[in-house]
Amino acid sequence: MQDKRKIRIALIMLGATVFVFLTFRYLLPYVYPFILAYFLVVAIMPVVKFLNHKLKLPKSIGALITLLLLVVILCLILCFVGVKVAQQARMLIRNLPIYQSVVLSNMNDGCNCLEKIFELSKGTVLNIVQKNVNDFLISIESNIMPMMTEQTLSIVLKAVGVFTVIFIILLAVILIIQDLDSMKMYYENFIFYKELHIVISKLAEAGIAYLRAQGILMLITASICTGGLFLIGNKYALLIGIVIGIFDAFPVLGSGFILVPWAIILLLTKNIYQAAIILTVYLLCQLTRQFLEPKLLGNRIGIKPIFTLMSMYLGVNFFGVVGFILGPIALVLIIAIVKSLCPELEMKSIVKTNKNEKMNILKFWKKH
């Protein structure tokens, strides 16, 4: 009996994994605008209801006004940030030869030390470093710069595609809000409502909480880093701040992957003030994540960092850059499906599930 139960659980886990993979690979590219539209409806619905109750505006008109204001605000922010990041990226690429000479001059002493330790002839280590740096710069000049200048047409076509998707999402939002009540009734009368409701509620609780928490934390971290780099007069404060904010979302790596080595280099080069600012920025990022992450997530995710990192790695390999987000969502969805089909299962090796959550799942299952 125990063996049959194990085989059943293993088959359910395998089936859930295959189902999620195939859905993300083949179905998601065609339906993601409507999924995003639904999440946008959930986000703006409080404002739409407020306009409907207080100003007696129809929900479709309230949704249109809310969306227009949201689009204008987001466009202004994205245009400002995008222009600044593009300017700083171009400046960084143009100034790479200057930074090369500065880095090589600072590394000269270190290379001499290594040559003495390993009893190498003078200039051996430095020549190797110079060759690698020159190859890196040549690859940038031959690949990245032509791509930025010669692929204007493809960039324009992609931009048109993005705007088309955005238009479809906005139109879908208005249509969903118009028929929200009838869609809800249809959903509640659906034959697989019980099973879908358990999975979707768990995914909404965990998946949305994860995305919202990571988005807020990345934004705050990027803002702290940008402000700190601005204080030390860094020309690429916004660009580097955004990069560090993205790195901070990775388990284990975090902002310290960039900030700590940077601070050490500044200390070795006797830039005490800049090193102190960088270390302060790192501490603020760590304190912010430690303080806000439990409040934003609570016990709704509970996935151990190693499994989050594995899901990100697999996601990037299967789905490209967007897999950085899809990987953890896929893991949350797989766990939600398995829990819905095996409510008695305690996934101790993967999920930190507290007693209240277990009882709520079992009560919900028995009730329905």
Rank of each mutant, 00 (worst) to 15 (best):
S223H: 02
L231V: 09
T221C: 13
A213L: 06
G227H: 04
L217F: 08
G207R: 11
G228W: 00
L229N: 03
Q214R: 11
A206L: 06
S223A: 15
G215C: 07
M218S: 07
G215Q: 06
G227A: 14
N234V: 06
G228S: 06
A213W: 09
G215M: 12
G207F: 14
I208A: 11
S223F: 11
G233M: 04
I220R: 02
R212K: 15
T226G: 03
G228E: 00
G215S: 08
G215H: 07
Q214N: 13
A206K: 09
T221S: 13
A222G: 09
L217Y: 03
G215W: 11
A206N: 13
G215T: 08
Q214H: 10
I224R: 03
F230L: 07
L231M: 07
A213F: 12
F230P: 00
A213V: 08
T221I: 12
C225W: 01
K235E: 01
I220M: 05
Y210S: 14
A222K: 00
L231F: 05
Y236M: 06
G233D: 05
G227K: 11
R212D: 08
I208R: 06
S223L: 10
E205L: 13
L219P: 11
G215F: 14
G207E: 10
G227L: 14
M218V: 07
T221M: 03
Y210A: 15
T226H: 00
S223D: 00
I232Y: 03
L211H: 06
L219I: 12
L217Q: 04
C225Q: 02
I208Y: 12
N234L: 14
L231S: 02
L229S: 05
L219D: 04
G228N: 00
L217M: 14
